[in-house]
Design a protein around this nucleic acid. Sequence first.
DNA 1: TAGATTGTTAATCGATTAACAATC
DNA 2: TAGATTGTTAATCGATTAACAATC
Lengths: 227, 227
Amino acid sequence: MKRIKVSNNVIRRLPRYLRKLDELNEQGVSRISSGELGKQLGLTPSQIRQDFSCFGDFGQQGYGYNVNTLRQDIATILGMDRGFNAILLGVGNIGNALLQNFSFEEWGFSMKAAFDVKPELIGKEVNGVPVLSQEQLSDYLQQNKVDVVVLCVPKEIAVKMTNDLIEQGIDAFWNFTNVELTDPNSDVLVENMHFSDSLLALSYFVSDKADEELARQNRQKRLNNRT
Amino acid sequence: MKRIKVSNNVIRRLPRYLRKLDELNEQGVSRISSGELGKQLGLTPSQIRQDFSCFGDFGQQGYGYNVNTLRQDIATILGMDRGFNAILLGVGNIGNALLQNFSFEEWGFSMKAAFDVKPELIGKEVNGVPVLSQEQLSDYLQQNKVDVVVLCVPKEIAVKMTNDLIEQGIDAFWNFTNVELTDPNSDVLVENMHFSDSLLALSYFVSDKADEELARQNRQKRLNNRT
DNA sequence: TAGATTGTTAATCGATTAACAATC
DNA sequence: TAGATTGTTAATCGATTAACAATC
């Protein structure tokens, strides 16, 4: 499978395909064409076929795609069957919410342990995940395979924490700290969940929409005045 | 200001500029060139100048950009000074975490109220935000200006909830439900925080990196065997 | 003034869309 | 078989990068 350079845009669309295919599966739809899939996702059929063709031939001429097998193929492409291990750092509000609510297993990850400094948390379990002391982290990393670290620590210590971890061999972070960790010159993977970036983009679109509405109304007014 | 069609890519970079400029401000840096800013963000100077030029002339030849005023200009572009009102639906784990932890004010939003169905929550305050009953929602919307709805309700009711709200005039959602709400044919704004999409993209990159490492090792092995 | 750096136009690069032969 | 729909090549479109005159 794959082995060509796949663009970031394509990769970002794969999880959307997966979710849509899951949905279709639930609805009992067993086959779908690029045309129909495109309509449901707001993409062109061409784009969908191009996207898939980065990874192989999943369709059948005259028929389309089998929902179930395509879903599995995309899951494989995304690495969902690789049994990646994750640990979580910082069992505060957001860390806790993730442990309680986010189904890591559903997406192919195994959440092995959480770490914090607060004595009242250590030794507890959150949704079946043991909370260990921050001090145990180094030992833990030496004794266990950890593929991804979920970063939920306070802003202030995020950068130092990350650098320590990188030194200990961690090279993939899921970053909830709203701090820019991305070092342009390193090959450490950082996937950001920047809440504020998302809200501000929405803020822009809302502003823009309001401005346009206003402009439209003003045009209308001028037109009315003229008559 | 503005009034030309600005591409999505540009808009998505604006919040990053803002965060970086805040950081520079804190560090006491008062001016910066597109070259230096580019270096720190992993972008080309050209791109940065192009981005800014969508909205006006913020720089000065031979000098660069004033960190503080540029920061304010970008904040204005993003609509941070428009006093948008938000409400939050669903005070579960994620909704609660947002109310507790996320500083809506910092990004120009005023979080006015939260809504839930659980009797034990209603009437309480979470971090200063009153929790009202779901039943009060319609009345609330009629009596108050609500610019953005933060959706934290369970998956199962997300679509119905959204459609109801759209009928009541809401046209901007910050969506935490991991359900695809985007209707390609409507002009309702939906900004998604799809946790799983983000994790799966990371999963792909981690997989890809592992594959490449493996391929590299195999090449090395073959080379060693040959000698 | 000379040096630096912008804003903007032109060139390049990459991603999306269209078209169509292959084929189920 | 005929109709449908893929995979892929070519054409178009848009975004990024390069270049440079303008100017602080």
